[in-house]
Design a protein around this nucleic acid. Structure first.
Length: 164
RNA sequence: CGGAGGAGGCGGGCGUUCGCUUCCGGCCCCGGCCGGGAGAGGAAAGUCCGGACUCCAGGCGGACAGCACGCCGGGUAACGCCCGGCCGCGGUAACGCGAGGGAAAGUGCCGCAGAGAGCAGACCGCCCCCGUGUCAGCACGGGGGUAAGGGUGAAAGGGUGCGGUAAGAGCGCACCGCUUUCCCGGUAACGGGGAAGGCAUGGUAAACCCCGUGCGGAGCAAGGCCAAAUAGGGAAGCCAAGGGUCGUCCGCCCCCGCAACCCGCUUCGGUGGGGGAGGCUUCCGGGUCGGCCGCUGGAGCCGUGGGGUGACUCACGGCCAAGAUGAAUGAACGCCGCUCCCGAGGGAGCACAGAAUCCGGCUUAUAGCCUCCUUCGAUCG
RNA sequence: CGGGACGUAGCGCAGCCUGGUAGCGCACCUGAAUGGGGUUCAGGGGGUCCGGAGUUCAAAUCUCCGCGUCCCGA
């Protein structure tokens, strides 16, 4: 856990974009609430990259099958991530099977995963089509741990795709 | 104050930052931006009933089958729901529970035990008479009368008491029950009372069944509109054999007509065989991927007043309150509130659960909190 | 949205329609046979009949309401 956090901060510094790195540390550290108000308005311009609309979603069963069959894989305690190289801004598909829990639990898992993708998609340096499967316990996992795991999976995905 | 019962409500609050869907207005011009508004439940659940709505390779009428319901009256669009009442059972009571029609229309079943279980029956007994033994009581054998007592069973053909008798028995009487009948109250279920009858009529219909009432079938993936690539020829009308529905059948009209229908294989697109296989005329559409509509304003909600014991209803006024579609309604953080744990201060947790065409119910899950009423017990005055 | 099947001993299944005794195979235990084991033979134990109500004298069986698993159709 501690090891993964160190790696994630190192990964952030490689991005050179100080605005984005500041936004990323906000949900990770509770002390981040004391951020300057003046730069908050300035940040609103840069937040366009944090949007996540329906056009950025994987919608068809065919597309899911293609990503499962031809993509690379990375699994963690609460997540399984599949990916192939994509176009434009990239896409995300989220699934949660009945094994994860009832309807309330599954919906919550999917929302949390979408939220993580929305906040961290910039860390992928090229367009990628992702499919994330939720695993049991995803709804109750501590937010910071879940984010760390997601980032770790993204790094593994990225290196595997670069090797191709 | 405590216990119990009933009715109803809420089911985290506030703030900051970043998002999602949709509506309205504006701008760039065909999906983006800006401003403003809205955005899960009491069960949204299970899919157990009832409707609205839509369609049916046809409709109308009738019969049967099948299924459901079943005290009485009312409410409702309708119901298997709700309200009020009756009866039965449970509870000291408040109150709760009840598939609660018919067993003198018929059939079936009632294991084991027991003498006998559905045209009742006589094991142990009780009593009388005759014979033998005997002082007698009594014993044995034979004949008869009984069903009170014992015993079996879930259930033994009214119950309790008194009289009566050889012993007994509704054999007689009183009360209770039952049947028939009359009167009174009630819309009715039913209740109250009188008279007569000496008692016949066991249980089971969540066994078949009978009686009464209701029901055509599917379901918003219903159904409709627009319409790529590819493939390519169908559609409409008329007559004849033939064929056609939603469990079956009948009648009439109607429709299809190179298909229907039957059998087999299937990658669910089709395809092989059987069956049946005539012509004429006119015309240009059919359909998949995808998209749009259906899609939320309704048996709607709130308030006031009237009617009703109540469910509910009527009148007037006001309001618009999710509409997604690989599926939005959120995420993170801070403060407060509540519960539990060591107890200075901290830590952990916050019920059941997520709209999918829409309503009326039922059922099931649900941490905690609040309000009102009733009843019982204790204490004080 | 609609339709169906199943739940019985540790495991796989009968019994349910037509209500009264819960049974079969494997596994388990004991004994015999063998130097020992397997096979075989004899005997034995083990059941909230998925849960809760109801009908009945009596329910695994009939009825209703739940729970769980699996499978179809559009």
């Amino acid at each position: 856990m501690n090891h993964e956090k160190n790696v994630s901060t190192k990964y952030q510094t490689t991005q050179e974009e100080t605005r984005v790195s500041r936004e990323n540390e906000n949900p990770q550290r509770p002390e981040g609430a004391q951020r300057p108000q003046a730069e908050g308005e300035n940040a609103s311009h840069s937040l366009m990259g944090m949007r996540f609309r329906r056009s950025a979603r994987v919608l068809k069963r065919r597309d899911y099958q293609r990503i499962y069959n031809t993509g690379v894989r990375a699994a963690g305690r609460w997540l399984v991530v599949f990916a192939v190289r994509g176009e434009g801004a990239g896409k995300l598909g989220v699934t949660a099977s009945r094994k994860v829990g009832g309807s309330v639990v599954r919906s919550r898992c999917k929302r949390r995963i979408r939220e993580m993708y929305r906040l961290h998609r910039r860390e992928l340096e090229f367009p990628v089509e992702l499919v994330v499967n939720a695993r049991k316990g995803c709804d109750n996992a501590p937010w910071n741990d879940l984010v760390a795991e997601f980032e770790a999976c993204l790094r593994r995905i990225r290196s595997q795709l670069e090797r191709r």
